[in-house]
Design a protein around this nucleic acid. Sequence first.
DNA 1: CTGAAAGCGCTTACAG
DNA 2: CTGAAAGCGCTTACAG
Lengths: 336, 336
Amino acid sequence: MAEERATIYTVARAAGVSAQTVSRVLNGTGQVSAATRANVLAVIEAQGYRPNAVGRSLRASRTPMIGVVVADIGNPFYARLHRALERRLSGSGFSLMLMNSDDDPRAERRQLDLLRSYRPTGLVIVPSAGSSLGEADLRALGHVVSVSRVPEGVAVPAVVTNERAAVGEATAELLAHGHTEPAIVLGPAGASTSRAREQGFLAALGPGRRGHVRHTDGTRAGGQAAAADLLATRPAVTAMIGFNALVTEGIVSALQAAGRPCPQDMSVIGFTDAGWMTLHRPALTVIDQPVEEMGALAGRLLLDLAAGHGVDPGPHVVPSTLIRRASVAPPKEHTP
Amino acid sequence: MAEERATIYTVARAAGVSAQTVSRVLNGTGQVSAATRANVLAVIEAQGYRPNAVGRSLRASRTPMIGVVVADIGNPFYARLHRALERRLSGSGFSLMLMNSDDDPRAERRQLDLLRSYRPTGLVIVPSAGSSLGEADLRALGHVVSVSRVPEGVAVPAVVTNERAAVGEATAELLAHGHTEPAIVLGPAGASTSRAREQGFLAALGPGRRGHVRHTDGTRAGGQAAAADLLATRPAVTAMIGFNALVTEGIVSALQAAGRPCPQDMSVIGFTDAGWMTLHRPALTVIDQPVEEMGALAGRLLLDLAAGHGVDPGPHVVPSTLIRRASVAPPKEHTP
DNA sequence: CTGAAAGCGCTTACAG
DNA sequence: CTGAAAGCGCTTACAG
């Protein structure tokens, strides 16, 4: 039982072999006789030796670590994404480093600088709204895959959902129920998701109809403020689509505060399902986003890239589907 | 514009100084003349040099990284905790590595092994139910602080809430409304939080009264199953306390599925507030846990330890408070 | 199947 | 105020 800390050299010495042979046993590379291997493993066990990832990373000029930079860790979407990535990457030897950009390009840059100092193998990023990241910034971080949002002017493999079509379907659902002036409460104007959903909304409305578009910071407070403003200033609005679960919480909250029952006074459709949406009365109709599939696909793409395989830049589209529940009804004063 | 990758040596050469001087400028250690410093900084800028954290960590035998091991990243409690830690630690130069034990001691050990290979500065841990971690396991990870749950038989600084008193207050609230046989739907039996809350529950009931205790895995599905079982087999139960926001979701869901309105047929008190709890009708009475304060305190303790200061092992108690909303009412068939 | 040497990018004594 | 040398713990060629 050596007093000094176990390293590859203390193991090598005790096993009567070279450090290189210990390294081979550790990594399963090259050829080692069964007897030597068993002996080395016994010494490793006896010394309680654990390889030092830092030494390995320094030599390899790469750390088996994947950065995950998201816009708002308070949004359950990102907890689900992180969990899906972790599942997909577990067993591959990669660690995940989760970072929060708070949807601020400067915070994003700071986080990526820190991440970069670890020489990570790759990065899964949800670019912040108004992100100023260029090719060079991202290349310095190894393999990069974007999820949900697509970075502007930078070609990286992307995993997204069918934003336009999904919002189009939701908008059509509202029109079919007789709503003539629906509203959509989006996230930040600088996010590709906000742009795509706005386009899907306007395209489904068609040239003749009026629709209302609001941008928010994507939080509950933002959604609540936008909905309250619409309630106060746009009496013709009888239906709202929320950008994410948080914004939808804000919309529902604003309706309650204003004493405007859903769906009688206001139909609501959320984007990204959440546990409370089935508990709420009425249960919320929602565009169900396949977050787990998106995360798993992003993880697989990253693993492929790390293995040196080519990867289809996509964007890879994992479709969302509309789940009809009870928060959409014809408008009260519907005059066809 | 050098083709080779910028290192401390390429900077030193271009600036006409030694690597050691560049290191001093980088770290603000020792004395460097203003002129030399300016020159070095200019070269750093010109070469786009970024220090390699791996080289630094190897030399220092420590990585400025704090591991965060939680039981279930799907539980919003942990997203809030991570965010609070990140806030507290931002600017200190420490990175956070978030890991999920899924409340499984073997997964927990695997995650800690991986973390240990990075030679982290510290660890914030919510021990898994039935965790088998000993002093030696934790000491190998640097400075350790536990949050929410307390590890068994291991002395580390701990940050907790007033489990017993908070559940006692909630139980008293139910008794005051005339409930004679309340139930508590807990998390895993092996978690210190489950034990403490059970004690608080039973103590508040007193020796004369009957109460029901159920354990779950702490998920929505677990809460739903336990609540459904209580509904089916314990008709005398007229009030339930949920272990966390997820379990409380499950309870509410089971009540809806069984057609048993809250609070008429069943009073409900949650533990840890969540956005949907004010949206739900009736709005849920809840034991509001100060997650952000707990995370901030844990972060501060870790920073103190890392700075070499002594730290009171505690447990440091950040009290929860009961928020009375509308989900507690007298039982329907209350016969005093 | 196995080993001696070099080097990944830093910082820590030590010397001036 | 500044620098030459050594070493943190590994793995990569290279040689046998």
